[in-house]
Design a binder for these strands. Structure first.
Length: 305
RNA sequence: GGCGGGAUAGCUCAGUUGGUAGAGCAGAGGCCUGAAAAGCCUUGUGUCCCCAGUUCAAGUCUGGGUCUUGCCA
């Protein structure tokens, strides 16, 4: 199993440029772990690397699907594992803000067959008809282990628990049990953080720049291509708010403020997530010394070569 | 100038027949097993604009004032 360098951190903290400079210097590839950069045609708002950056360093798992296609943590774990284990990439850097994707890759996800759309739709429409409490009670009968771990108001997870049972005939908690233990990977897990207010400030100014660079046009173009408001990719922060302007005439300034706010909310959730992650190195943005990073990374590479 | 709305938590606003207040959002903390830029949980003492009056008791009624906003001139 190949060693992997991981760089994660909240949105707008500067992890991409860090990964880029490291990859360039050490001649490594980058695997993006970003649930929105996977989408084609969504460039500005997802802070995707620029064309020249993509040319300088080989990036993977960027622009792999259309905005109306679904993707998920399981697919990422699979795609990333394939790239790391079945190709001749050496010491890839996995860089991105989608913590769940990275943990799925590192720790694995239980193997659950695809749930038929009819089953999923039935569960969803039942939920809308019967309400959360009845559906939660139903889940409690079927799979108390899962039910106990979630709120009786958590539509996504209640429906997930039910659809797995109705779609496979097996309880979700049984799948959890069966989850095989992965051979642990050799990883150097790095997170970049910063003061809350500085992250928030950078988010705000970055979004202003995105809009100035034509994010509204990019969003409009997605609509012209035929993508719909609730297509998977279109729900991305920074886009969904502009769609409010384009489709529902909400004042632009209001939409811009909301987009910034939702990005800040997201950054906060990311920071909470990292607190419980097993990390090897935590770099504070303001005091990142590239010499230090080089030292740790070269040490890691030498130890694992 | 005339007539009418408003004035309550950082913001937008609820407050029923008078009993010293409560939602959403924000903020903060947390959760997270295929939607994860998603979803969910916890967390609300604030001169209820000011002054006077009625009342055992006023955000709630009466009078006066201040600010604000709409319509008519």
């Amino acid at each position: 199993m190949k060693p992997v360098i991981i760089i994660q951190g909240p949105t707008a903290v500067g992890k991409s440029s860090l990964a880029l400079s490291l990859a360039e210097k050490l001649n490594l590839d980058i695997i993006s772990a970003d649930s929105r950069q996977i989408y084609k045609y969504m460039d500005l708002g997802t802070a995707k690397p620029e064309a020249d950056e993509l040319a300088r360093v080989k990036h993977h798992l960027i622009d792999i699907i259309r905005p109306d296609e679904k993707y998920n943590a399981g697919a990422f774990a699979q795609d990333a594992s394939r790239l790391v284990d079945d190709t001749d990439l050496k010491f890839p850097i996995i860089c991105g803000g989608t913590g769940f994707y990275i943990s799925s890759f590192l720790e694995g996800l239980c193997v659950i067959p695809e749930i038929a759309v009819e089953v999923r739709n039935k569960v969803m429409s039942d939920y809308d008809k019967l309400g959360s409490i009845l559906m939660y009670d139903k889940l409690s009968e079927i799979d108390p282990i899962v039910a106990k771990r979630i709120s009786d108001n958590d539509k996504q997870r209640i429906c997930r628990g039910l659809e797995v049972f109705f779609g496979t005939g097996k309880k979700l908690s049984d799948f959890w049990e069966e989850q095989g233990i992965l051979t642990p990977r050799k990883v150097l897990n790095i997170v970049v953080v910063d003061d809350r207010e500085d992250i928030y400030h950078r988010i705000n100014t970055r979004y202003e720049i995105m809009v100035k660079n034509g994010l509204l046009d990019e969003t409009r173009k997605l609509l012209e291509m035929g993508y719909k408001e609730n297509d998977p990719g279109m729900t991305a922060v920074g886009y969904k708010e502009l769609l409010e302007n384009l489709l529902h005439k909400r004042p632009l300034s209001e939409c811009i403020n909301l987009a910034k706010q939702h990005s800040r909310n997201y950054a906060k959730r990311q920071l909470t997530w990292y607190r419980k992650c097993k990390l090897d190195l935590v770099f504070y943005r303001k005091s990142i010394k590239y010499k230090d990073i080089d030292y740790y990374i070269e040490k890691f590479i030498n130890e694992n070569n």
